[in-house]
Simulated scan of single mutants.
Amino acid sequence: MNMWIKVAVTMIAALTLATSSQAAEWNFYGSARVKTFHEDVDDGSGNDATNFDMGLHGNARVGAKVKVSDALKGRFEYGAKNGAANLRQLYGEWNFGAGSFLVGQTYTPIYTVYSKSVYLEDGALEKYGATSASRKPMLRLEFGGFQIAAVEPTADALGGTTTEMTIPNLEASYTAALDFATLKAVVGYNTYDVDSISVNSYVVGLGAKTKFGRAYLAGSFFLGQNLGTYGFKTATDANPVIFGASLVDNESFGCTLIAGYKLNEMVSFEAGYGYTESELDQAASRKDDASQYYLQAKITLAQGVYVYPEIGKLDQGQDNTGAEQGDTTYFGAKWQINF
């Protein structure tokens, strides 16, 4: 009897799975990406080194977009960070007519990245002037071009003993699609306590992109405070400092400028520049700055087969003591096949 019960349960489970898979539309995808770059690295103290960097991109990915109905959809995506599978995106989204409600992990509302720079594994100026806290777990409401989200909060003890968080990170954005350009405004706020000292972080920013013929221009800028404890992506030290029983805030700024041109269906070009700086609000501190500029081509060898030659430079600038942090000049390519 037990055998027949097991057989029946197995058949019911199989039928349920088959029915479920037929009810939803599963569109699987993948993207294999490999970097091959020559680097000339100056560590800031007069020491130079050359390096050839080849490996699988951490954002090489597999995933699926799932449509259950016109009102319900979802997505999952895994990457290959450090050679191991890591969750990039996993969310479900319900369209309730007047708007939509998202539950899960994806890019937060402040994400404003226009660059296609492939160095640093598709870094896209994300730490060099672009506005980004990347992907985080969240609850998000969207109405037209407006998004508001309760995002997983972040905290850094800053050398203290105990951290306490009472509310989520709050983010909002508004995107306006005009005849001549697409504009985006963003704002974010994060707060927590370290040993009864409040650490408040915020970011505000604007972005714009316009296209005319085969050419396009895009740019963004942000202003922020204590972005290191916010979880913001930046190459500078943007953490505040606890001094006695008070907090010394760290103010940040960043901007990007990108221009591109599509020569034909096979070849297009892009050039970009990004700059960011952070400075503690105290007399002895100096600006910690960093920048990147690059020139890139996108070559389409066949449908889904691409190579991205790129040449550029990362300048780590000075730290908040005035010490040089070095720079990296690079050239090479990313190789990519989408499937």
Rank of each mutant, 00 (worst) to 15 (best):
G207P: 00
F269R: 05
V118P: 00
L125F: 06
N338F: 12
Y294Q: 12
N47A: 11
V307D: 04
F180P: 01
H38G: 12
W94Y: 15
Q282Y: 10
A235H: 05
E171K: 07
V7I: 15
R61D: 02
I167Y: 14
V62G: 09
L257Y: 03
T50V: 13
H57M: 11
E265N: 13
K65R: 10
F253E: 00
T256K: 06
P137E: 06
S285G: 01
M54A: 14
I299V: 15
Y293T: 05
T163W: 10
Y216L: 04
K334I: 06
D289Q: 13
G55L: 04
G145Q: 07
D319V: 02
F52H: 08
K116I: 04
S198G: 08
T50K: 12
W335N: 10
V267Y: 11
T182I: 08
K73P: 01
I167V: 09
V9F: 13
G123K: 01
L90W: 03
T166Y: 10
D70L: 07
T236I: 03
Q336C: 03
A235Y: 03
T256H: 01
H57G: 13
G46N: 08
S115R: 04
S268H: 02
A181M: 08
Y216M: 08
L87A: 04
N338I: 11
W4M: 11
T229Q: 04
F37I: 13
Q318E: 15
L141D: 03
G160H: 07
G219K: 09
V248D: 01
S132L: 01
K73M: 10
S220Q: 11
M54C: 06
R286Q: 14
F331P: 00
L87D: 01
S220H: 05
G144Y: 06
G332H: 09
E164C: 00
P109Q: 09
P109T: 12
D288W: 03
F37Y: 15
K6R: 14
A290M: 09
M165F: 03
S278M: 01
A150L: 13
N59V: 13
A208E: 05
A85T: 13
G46A: 07
T161F: 05
V103G: 06
D43T: 01
Y273N: 03
P309C: 09
F269P: 03
K233M: 04
Q225F: 02
R286W: 05
V199A: 02
K116C: 03
Q292I: 06
V194D: 07
D195A: 02
V194Q: 00
L314N: 09
T182E: 11
V248K: 14
P109I: 08
L56W: 07
K67E: 15
A290T: 02
D42Y: 10
E25G: 06
F243S: 11
N239T: 03
G188R: 04
T112K: 04
A149G: 05
G326W: 11
G332A: 05
F253A: 00
Q89F: 05
H38F: 15
L17E: 06
E25I: 00
M1K: 12
L158Y: 08
G74M: 02
S252D: 12
V68T: 14
A60P: 02
A49K: 12
R75F: 08
E277Q: 14
Q105M: 08
T162C: 02
T108A: 06
